[in-house]
Simulated scan of single mutants.
Amino acid sequence: MKKIQYLLIIFLMLFSSKEILAQKDSIALQREARKMLRQGNELYQKQQFTDASVAYQKALGSNSNYDKAAYNLGNALYQNKNYKEAIPQYELTAKTATDKFTKAEAYHNIGNAMMESKQYQPAVDAYKNALRNNPNDDETRYNLAVAQKMVDKENQQNKDDKNKDKKDNKDKKDDKDKGKDKDKKDGEDKDKKDNKDKDGEGDKDKDKNKDPKKDDKKDKQKPKPQQGKMTPQQIKQLLESLNNEEKKTQKKMNAKKAKGKKVKQEKDW
């Protein structure tokens, strides 16, 4: 029995020692965290924001739920224009902070970082959360109005862009249709020209296929040109011939009467 009691006492002493050591380590870490926080604040006041960020990160390494270190780290990153990296630090503060004013400040800074990143709708949401925790913050209310105006402007721009795209697409379609109509008209004109050329070639082919014999027959069937009228000189010669012929005939008749022989007549023409 005494042995069991002895073992139990030893166990309790060891457990207590471990607990005491753990508490000491926790206290030491918290002290280290506060120390690094103060160091970071000093660097921040000197506008050495990069070095301040390192100090705040060390503070969070000692105490990951140290909301003050997270908030100040967010500010240092914000000052270095690392808005994307700053937002998670502010979100951590908003999540771990126990008082509404600290939460409101964290959401306010989230809104500012979102505005710098041109994420206007998330900025509006962040400012609204800030005002839920601190409705009397006029600066947050003003920033909310600016953010909302930017959202409206962005929505209008998107609407105008869509309308412009629709108009451009319609113009392209109209131009395409006009091009099709022009191509169709050009095709019809070309077809007409081709048909006309074919008709001309057909006429030529008909001429080629004509039978030359038929043309000769047609030429033969044509009436021959009549002889022209006699000239005055020809008439004179004809009269003289007739006169001479008459004299010869008379002479022959007189000789026949005398001799009784028949005289052969010869034509003078």
Rank of each mutant, 00 (worst) to 15 (best):
E154I: 02
L37V: 03
D199V: 13
N82C: 05
P225W: 02
A59K: 01
D138C: 05
N209S: 04
D215P: 00
K68P: 02
N209M: 12
N109T: 02
R141V: 03
A126E: 05
D205S: 06
D174C: 00
A104I: 10
H108K: 13
G61P: 01
D219V: 08
S26W: 06
N143H: 09
Y127F: 15
I9W: 00
K236C: 03
D125C: 10
Y44G: 00
Q226H: 06
D160C: 02
D194K: 08
L73G: 00
Q265R: 13
G179Q: 13
K149E: 09
Q79M: 14
L144I: 02
P225H: 07
K259E: 09
D99Q: 12
N133P: 09
D67R: 04
S64K: 08
N243Q: 08
N63G: 02
Q265W: 12
Y142D: 05
Y66N: 02
N143P: 02
M253D: 14
T231A: 08
D25W: 08
A55G: 06
S16G: 11
D207M: 10
Y127Q: 03
E116F: 10
Q45L: 11
K184A: 15
N112H: 04
E85V: 05
Q23E: 14
Q5I: 09
Y120I: 04
K167A: 11
K176W: 13
Q250V: 08
K236S: 08
A147P: 07
N163A: 11
Q89P: 01
L92Y: 04
A33L: 01
K193H: 04
E139N: 14
A55L: 03
D194I: 09
V146H: 08
Q250W: 10
L239A: 13
E42T: 15
I4T: 13
